[in-house]
């Protein structure tokens, strides 16, 4: 399967990193940092998935710690964090997954277009134990973000 070729995987991994950084900076005004914030990773996670079907089928997961998710949502909506409801946080993380996944599909597609599905929130443990094709951690001012690609 061409998508298991190490060169293809390396290229997709780099694309996943670059696309995520661009989405964070352009739409969320969030700039990744070199090292984790104190206590980062100990909070609950907000996780959204972007699924696609075709050759290959797969899923892109975008997970943010609760504080980072609320901060990104507030930036995206241009409102105060205190005014940002849980529903808005979830919807914004879904939109983040939609943008990252949508852009990444352009790198995965060959001749046949892949069918994307609307992003949705999932339990943070939904992908525990599964091996990702590519995965990156971004350290943010208010927590962490993990973005991963899985084949299905």
């Amino acid at each position: 399967m061409p998508h298991s070729d190490p060169r293809v995987v390396a290229s997709l991994s780099q694309a996943l990193r670059d696309i995520t950084a661009e989405v964070l900076e352009t739409m969320f005004y969030v700039f990744p940092e070199e090292s984790p914030a104190e206590g980062a990773g100990e909070e609950a996670w907000v996780t959204a998935v972007f699924r696609f079907e075709g050759a290959p089928s797969g899923v892109v997961t975008v997970a943010l710690t609760a504080g980072a998710a609320r901060s990104a949502a507030a930036n995206f909506l241009a409102i105060d964090e205190e005014e940002t409801g849980d529903g808005q946080v979830g919807e914004v993380v879904c939109e983040m997954a939609n943008m990252v996944g949508g852009c990444l599909l352009g790198c995965i597609e060959n001749r046949t277009p892949l069918q994307p599905f609307p992003p949705e929130l999932v339990n943070a443990e939904a992908f525990a134990g599964r091996e990702a094709v590519a995965s990156h951690v971004f350290y943010l001012e208010n927590g962490e973000m993990r973005v991963s690609l899985y084949w299905e």
Partner: peptide, 8 residues
């Protein structure tokens, strides 16, 4: 106004 995968 849409994401890149829908360019086609």
């Amino acid at each position: 106004v849409s994401s890149a995968q829908t360019e086609m």
